[in-house]
């Protein structure tokens, strides 16, 4: 699967649309290939309002410039992380290669904070 097909894809659960995939969270703890561990897909970042994202203000401690921060944090309010294990189906364009996928989550999935690092420990991974 091409990862780009997931980006901007609508996300559905319990019969309704929750939002759009704005990013895919990875962690470098997969099988070691060459010098580095392969990135494992941890989950999807879902925004209820927009499929676009900009600079990641909604998932870091960065809060300057204040005007930009306030607008983008407001624009992406309600963004959450859903675990890859909670994805029950990636259908549509991701299989046909047309780039318009649809992501379905299992009933009772859990929402997690989109923060890149625990609050107060800095924004950089």
């Amino acid at each position: 699967m091409i990862l780009g097909d997931l980006l901007d894809a609508p996300v559905y659960a319990d019969g309704g649309q929750l939002g759009f995939v704005v990013d895919v969270r990875l962690v470098l703890d997969g099988p070691v290939k060459g010098l580095r561990a392969a990135p494992r897909v941890v989950g999807l970042l879902v925004s209820a309002r927009t499929g676009a994202t900009f600079l990641g203000y909604e998932r870091t401690d960065t809060n300057a410039p204040a005007l930009v921060w306030r607008y983008l944090a407001w624009r992406h309010r309600g963004t959450f992380l859903v675990l890859w294990e909670d994805v029950v189906g990636v259908t549509g364009g991701a299989q046909r290669g047309t780039g318009d996928a649809r992501v379905d989550l299992r009933p009772g999935f859990r929402r997690w904070s989109p923060a890149l690092a625990p609050t107060g420990t800095g924004s950089r991974p």
Binding site: V24, V27, L28, L83
Partner: peptide
């Protein structure tokens, strides 16, 4: 659940 490795967001990083 997150894993102990370095965390990256595909679009951001």
């Amino acid at each position: 659940l997150r894993g102990a490795g370095r965390v990256l967001d595909a679009r951001l990083h």
